[in-house]
Amino acid sequence: MDLVVQIMFGVTGLLILGAALMVVSVRNIIHAALWLIACFFGIAMLYLLLHAEFLAIVQVLLYIGAVAVLVLFAVMLTRQIDDPDEPVLFQRWRSTLLIAVLLFAAVLVPTIYTHDWQTFTDPQPTFAGPRELGFAFMNAYLLPFQIAAVLLLAALVGAIIIAMEDQEQRRVRVLTLAEEVALRREREPSPPARSAHPQPTSSSTTPPPVPPAHEQAGEGA
């Protein structure tokens, strides 16, 4: 049983680390985002191994279902012509790599292995299900919960404002025939012979908007 868990942990760890390395090393950014998803999936598996089921599901729902998809979406919206000569890394990437490796090898590994962790392994941990978490959020962690809510709201509003386009740059919609007719009727006085046209009220569903460019060009013909 122990061996099974160890093997599963090994596989999960390899998946996480391998996928993470691919994220930072592959050239194609879409592939990087896909590897990121694989990495998130591995982390969700790790959470399951650590008996954090709820967190694993939230990881899948939020990270894979929302964040990673958002990343993919943003990449596709900002797609540029892939120039194979253009480097994907900064000039300073060697120093960065050196710092990262040093951080890992010289700081983290010795720290982890020299520190005496006061751990105890509980064969039957308290299940941290949604009910327990809900109680915790509503009692002990109420203030952080509210702050997180405000943060999310701020992020939502901020994201919308940042990404909003200027209205003037929007393309003008092509009109339907009915809209064109309504527009024309409004601009030109209706002939007396057809006086049986009461003006539509403001609640009318007739939508007469801006004429597109081609329309005005074709007017004289």
Binding site: Q167, R170, E186, P209, V210
Partner: peptide, 9 residues
Amino acid sequence: LAAGGLAVS
């Protein structure tokens, strides 16, 4: 739209 405004908002 009828007043010649913009198409979307």
